[in-house]
Amino acid sequence: MSPSDVPLPKVLAIDDSELIHRLLRVRLQYEQLELHGSTKAEDGLRLARELRPDVILLDIEMEGMDGFHVLQVLKSDIDLQDIPVIFISATASMEDRVRALDLGAIDFVGKPFEVVELKARVRSALRVQHLVKMLAQRAQVDGLTGLWNRTYFDRRLLQEVSEATRHNRSVSLVMCDVDGFKRLNDERGHPFGDMVLERVAKILQGGRGSDVACRYGGEEFGIILPNTAAIEAIEVAERYRRAMEQEIWAMAPGMVITSSFGVAEFRNLGADAGVNDLVQAADGALYRAKLNGRNRVEAAMATHRTA
């Protein structure tokens, strides 16, 4: 996965009246959005988790779980709490409006709604959500290469290691460093060095869809490989190594730029190991690859083997 896909925004309407869903489908049909709907609060919450909508339109009065309750569930879920919620309700009482806003709703539209106003409020919420998402993403993307940055790497690696531990799956880490990069920079200038980093990023991005390529810092890259054992991770790293070695540099014909790789699998590090141990193990292997002549892949040795 890479940080650069922009799909149509999704709007999820949760309202117990089919009449309202029909109306929304017609009234929002020309808007640049994908409309989803649910007539039951519980189904709506399930859909919210599945779809990760950009805006939720929520009715207050529903049989069973009411809108306030749904809003509380949304706001207490770390994955859903940032989705803006617009209340749509025929209950016009000021107390309800205040309560909805205090619980974290971004806006309130009365029923029957004026179509133009509803569209404007949905657009406004989508704009806010777009900016929030963009800011969140900007803060996680490396400006030069477009890869995920170090902040994202740290968070994602922790998440993948926890997931792997919980489900007893393997996760591997590949650290990659461009050989002789400092000399390249000194001899050919920084613009050339930047171009090399961009090209390396492109190669790393062209790997398997599930691999997460990040710029770790300077000329060093970290690739997180979920669900991948060391033996397979070594093959992946070897493919990258070959691709870089074979890259043709139009600005410097005949030039060969290589990279070294260190591979580590979390399960091989023993029961007490943490995320930092994984980074250290992969970094140690990378160091050995450098010592052993560069342009090669080294793997951390299995110290302990846990189930």
Partner: peptide, 20 residues
């Protein structure tokens, strides 16, 4: 009440505010 409430919320949207 639920049925009346749903009609109240929707009728105007279909162009029948007095019904709402």
């Amino acid at each position: 009440r639920l049925l009346a409430h749903q009609l109240k919320g929707a009728a105007g949207g279909y162009g029948f505010p007095k019904l709402g």
